[in-house]
Design a protein around this nucleic acid. Sequence first.
RNA 1: GGCGGGUUGGCGGAGAGGUUACGCAGCGGAUUGCAAAUCCGUGUAGAUCGGUUCGAUUCCGAUACCCGCCUCCA
Length: 499
Amino acid sequence: MVTIRLTNSKTRKKEDFVPIDASNVRMYVCGPTVYDRAHLGNARPVVVFDVLNRLLGHVYGPDHVTYVRNFTDVDDKINAEALRRQKAGSPGTLEDLIHERTEETIAWYHADMDALGATRPDHEPRATEYIGQMVAMTQGLIDTGHAYAVEGHVLFRVRSYKDYGALSGRSVDDMIAGARVEVAPYKEDPMDFVLWKPSSGEEPGWASPWGKGRPGWHIECSAMSLELLGESFDIHGGGLDLQFPHHENEIAQSACAHPHGDFAHYWLHNEMLQVEGKKMSKSLGNFFTVRDLLTSGFPGWRGIPGPVIRYVFLLTHYRKPMDWRQATASNAKRRLDIWSSEVSANSDLKRDFETDREGFTKDFVGNEVVQALSDDLNTSLAITLLISTGKKLEGAERALLRSDEVEGLQRELVAGCFLVGIDLFAYGDSNKKRSEGIPEYLAKLIALRDTAMQTKDFSAVDALKSALTAAGVEVRMSKSGVELVPGPDFDPAKLEALQ
RNA sequence: GGCGGGUUGGCGGAGAGGUUACGCAGCGGAUUGCAAAUCCGUGUAGAUCGGUUCGAUUCCGAUACCCGCCUCCA
């Protein structure tokens, strides 16, 4: 069996991955707060841990991996949006509006992440469904002296956990030194963080021993991972920005509430996303959602297919800052177009793959690709290997191959792509859909060109060619024939206008 | 101020203590009604300084610069 190696934030080292129970490998990843559309940065951990989930499934069997990713549906921003809607005249109670908002956002999230080829986790718990467990865990922490209730709040006593700060490499004293921490008069120590806080009149709240209130953010993940994965599990993932304080606080809570468990054995953190070299932010004007990219893309484009976005993500190792750039996306699209056209004509292959994608992948994925992914998710190297497989199917080399060799390379390419979450056939099919209407122009162009070859008058050919180019269709002519390829800015409406 | 990460050819981006990464762009050639595309070939590297070594871009140390986190932003 392949040994997976992962960089563990807890030890800062790349380690062999040894599951607690190989028949049930367990992973928890912090999910989104569902108050609005996911932006591109939100998608990075989704793709990273989706690849890991697929790899674990490949190595241990899909039925032997449990992947949990939560929805945080208790949040001030959600409340604010619901309140705004109520004031704008939306019918229903505030609670209805909150529910409406979270349901809507979760549906968006699913649609957007599905488009990126991310498999849905086995469990997607919502914080509001685990309030009882959070209250119980909080009470337990009070009982053992790790937390205290004051003025309707419950606070975690940071000094009661000696390893606090170990994950992020800080000491409580250092943190206080440079600190921008909220100093509330009721805190024993400025670093103490909230487990439960009171809700005012119109805010949503749940009954608790400390009055009507709601859980703190950190306790949510501790309670949900305990419920679904147990006191000890294998992998905990999330963005690097969550390492402190969120993950540090999770560890403190879980370790103190369940001193006999180990909580997570391996902590994985993905680096952040940048846009054209800068941090994505609303003030810089380079902020966009996944949906924006899927439907619009770059200026002049008409949407970027999800697999193309995923491919761009895969080009950068998850522990390095990733830059989202138009040039990279263009290259990615081109590569996927080439790959899908290389395999799309093989309908037997398509049928085999679509009958059982996981089984097909298991059987035909290249060993080197699995090795690359197993080495701390080296997706960039995996892509390089796939490029080299793809290259063998192009150009002069292909002519030297026997048909069974071609078939073998095609299988390897399809399987390798699927292991990193790209379905080449589905991608090809959606491309075909986009280019509906093109074939008739192809026929027209060929006819015009044939005539022109006789008459030597190419004006009609050139006119149609530039019209097609203007509509975003790339025109490729050679001795062997004419090919029309829709580009990212292909606009069917402009094509209609030609008639 | 504290903590962490990074610095590879024009750009992006890997592996390996000694042997071509790779992709894009560039350049030369083939092909082409023109152009694009395609095909063949090809140059360029590892922040700085020091150490270990027969030999380091790869290991160790220092310096410089960049980035992130320390704010319920993934």
